[in-house]
Design a protein around this nucleic acid. Sequence first.
DNA 1: ATTATTGCAAAGCCTTTGCATCGTT
DNA 2: AACGATGCAAAGGCTTTGCAATAAT
Lengths: 152, 152
Amino acid sequence: MQQQTDPIFQEFSDICRKLDWRMTSSRLAVYRYVRGNKEHPTVDAVWKAVQKEQPNISRESVYRILTDFAAKGLIYILDPPNVVARYDSSSKRHDHFFCQQCGKIVDFNADEIDAIIRNKLSAVGRIDRVEARVLGVCQECLDKETVSKTIK
Amino acid sequence: MQQQTDPIFQEFSDICRKLDWRMTSSRLAVYRYVRGNKEHPTVDAVWKAVQKEQPNISRESVYRILTDFAAKGLIYILDPPNVVARYDSSSKRHDHFFCQQCGKIVDFNADEIDAIIRNKLSAVGRIDRVEARVLGVCQECLDKETVSKTIK
DNA sequence: ATTATTGCAAAGCCTTTGCATCGTT
DNA sequence: AACGATGCAAAGGCTTTGCAATAAT
């Protein structure tokens, strides 16, 4: 990886040092494309864009690089890969809590947010549905953690 | 499909009549399992459960039946099939509007909902992230619709 | 009798994985 | 020189599709 003077190179160089990562041209190219990008790109979109700079980069590397970036909080996974379809018996507006540990999904109602958000997005277009999604760890899983730590 | 006297049979019979659907034992069995179910089941979960009642039902039929149910608003698709992974350059808390027509995803901020929901879910467990997801049709797509209708 | 619905087999697509090679440190 | 990262080929898993057989009207 050649030394470069542009600011993004410097920025990413620092990131790699902190993360104890080797700074590769693939990672830098993905970082360049993703940084500040408002498109919420798919893997293929990133891949095609980055190919202009790095013609030999493989789709698989893009997968790995994006996964690593997300694991370190550099980016956020808006829609994760390999989510299996789920169906909800209620089609009425409501909200969901997802336990990241056991996978449990809990319904709840925060109907207040509907008006707040409709008001805020009035210029964006027609709004068909507003849903809050909450990620966390449920109380049962938290309790289990405590027990196992206590027993040790 | 044999005539039956239990209330769910009657209920689903009415639904099928209104929708101009044939009432089949597969559909009824899926309806029985899904109705009021709070598990947010996957296709496989529905399939396995329904097999107890209908041992010959195929997984493919469950797919088709659930898709049809959702298309008619009988159920809601919480996580749709075939969503490709998407990555977001910002890992800071924010919210998303999804245009159902062109696929565009627009960021926005409704930070107020964070406190509202954390307060409401305090007993559910640890909360790591709150995000609002809004489904609708963006203004550009609405405009295009109007134009094409006007031109006709 | 008609035709929507189903089961079966196969295909499709996104994503992950194993491994040898390459490139950074 | 050491070893983490990558490209390639292949496998994996969920979902869809074509078509003949079945079952509801």
